[in-house]
């Protein structure tokens, strides 16, 4: 059975739940898709911000579970880039992105901050997060479609005549 840590399982407020959703979509977006939609955004004003933490690349140790659901073990590392910034309004945006793209980390952190701002939340939700989510879901559906074409059912082999 799948088991996640208590910390990860803690009840989230609705605000935290939506933030968790957009952070995940921003992180999993292909950089080119993110750039394309980001550049097409028409923001009320160019966002002013300063870095709390400049984009920094490091390694996160990935944990698996013995037998898939048993005790955790350290599997190996993954490159991760993180960034934190503050808008002029004081809102903090942050990002943790698999890989080494500083541009991805900055854009995602900025989007995270703007999605918390009343003035820009709706625009980013509809013109950035939702389209990126759709791209990811379509890509996943395509992979699933291809995989399911290779599905075998050894059980349905015809035996004799019916």
């Amino acid at each position: 059975m799948s088991v996640t840590s208590q910390q990860a399982n803690a009840e989230l407020t609705p605000e935290q739940a939506s933030r968790k959703r957009w952070i995940g979509i921003l992180a999993k977006a292909e950089l080119k898709d993110l750039q394309q939609h980001w550049q097409a955004l028409v923001l009320p004003a160019a966002p002013e911000y300063q870095f709390i933490r400049k984009p920094e690349t490091g390694l996160t140790m990935l944990r698996g579970r013995i037998g898939g659901s048993g005790q955790p073990f350290n599997m190996g590392e993954m490159t991760v880039t993180r960034c934190a910034l503050r808008l002029a309004s004081g809102t903090l945006g942050l990002s943790y992105i698999a890989g080494r793209s500083k541009e991805h980390a900055i854009t995602a952190a900025l989007a995270d901050a703007l999605l918390q701002e009343e003035r820009t939340a709706e625009l980013l939700e509809s013109a950035l997060i939702n389209p990126l989510d759709e791209i990811q879901q379509a890509a996943q559906a395509e992979r699933m479609r291809e995989a399911s074409s290779t599905k075998v059912d050894f059980f349905t082999m015809v035996r004799g005549e019916d």
């Binding site: 990935l62 579970r65 995989a147």
Partner: peptide, 22 residues
């Protein structure tokens, strides 16, 4: 890898929720 700082540990990967391709 020795030149990079460690940024924490992931949550245990949930392979049961894997998007199966094989």
């Amino acid at each position: 890898r020795t030149t990079l700082p460690r940024i924490g540990y992931s949550e245990p990967l949930d392979t049961e929720a894997m998007q199966i391709e094989r």
